[in-house]
C-alpha cells in the first residue's frame, strides 16, 4: 500500500480516544502518526510523556526540524502550531490561533496534504469545534484518504459532523473500527 503518514485531529473527548487508540495499536505499527489535540496553552507537555509511559508505542512531542520517521507517534506541543515541510520535517510556529486553537488541526492537515498528497490519511475524531474541517477538505483535494469518526459514536459530535458535512468521506466509522482499519492498511503496506 501507498500511505506514508497519518494525521489525526482531536478536541474535547480526545484524551480518552487517544488512550483507546494507543492501547489497541500494535507495537510494530509502521506508518508515522501525527496528532493535534487541543489543549490548554499552559499545559507543560507532561501528558505526552504520560501517554508514552503507559504505552508500548513510541509517542513523543514533535520537535521543530525533527524528521518524521516510521514507527513514531508525534503530538503537537501546547501553544504552538505544528506544520509539515516538503522535506518531511516539522516546523513549529506561534502564529495567531486558527479556529480559536493553537495548535490547530487545519494548519497541520493543510501542510501535511501538500507534502504527502495521495499518500496521506486524515482522520477527524471527537471535538466540539469546527477545526479540522478545512484541513480534511484540503486532504481530499490533494487525493488523500479521509476518515471521520461516526458523530453518533463520538464523545463530542460537533467536530466530526462538521467535517462530514464538508466532504464526501472515504470512511465514517466508530473509533474501534477506525483503529482496525488503520492496522489493516499498515499490514498491507508491509
Amino acid at each position: 500500500m501507498k500511505f506514508e503518514a497519518i494525521v489525526i485531529g482531536l478536541s474535547s473527548g480526545g484524551m480518552s480516544a487517544m488512550k483507546m487508540m494507543f492501547s489497541i495499536l500494535p507495537k510494530d505499527f509502521g506508518i508515522p502518526i501525527v496528532i493535534v489535540q487541543h489543549i490548554n496553552a499552559n499545559s507543560n507537555g507532561f501528558w505526552i510523556k504520560f501517554l508514552n509511559d503507559n504505552s508500548n508505542l513510541n509517542i513523543k512531542e514533535a520537535d521543530e526540524k525533527e524528521k518524521i520517521m516510521p514507527g513514531n507517534i508525534y503530538i503537537a506541543p501546547p501553544n504552538y502550531h505544528l506544520l509539515i515541510e516538503k522535506n518531511k520535517t516539522f516546523s513549529l510556529t506561534i502564529d495567531e490561533r486558527v479556529n480559536f486553537a493553537r495548535p490547530s488541526i487545519d494548519v497541520l492537515f493543510e501542510t501535511a496534504a501538500e507534502t504527502y498528497k495521495e499518500k496521506l490519511i486524515g482522520i477527524v475524531l471527537t471535538g466540539a469545534n469546527q477545526d479540522g474541517t478545512e484541513g480534511i477538505k484540503h486532504i481530499k483535494e490533494f487525493g488523500g484518504l479521509a476518515i471521520i469518526q461516526d458523530p453518533e459514536t463520538a464523545e463530542s459530535s460537533y467536530m466530526p459532523a462538521s467535517a462530514m458535512a464538508a466532504i464526501k468521506a472515504d470512511y465514517i466509522l466508530p473509533l474501534a473500527e477506525i483503529i482496525a482499519l488503520l492496522i489493516k492498511i499498515d499490514q498491507q503496506k508491509n
Binding site: L83, K86, S91, D95, T111
Partner: peptide, 9 residues
C-alpha cells in the same frame, strides 16, 4: 524561512 509557514501566509 520555513516554507510551509510562508506558503500558508
Amino acid at each position: 524561512y520555513s516554507q510551509a509557514h510562508i506558503g500558508r501566509r
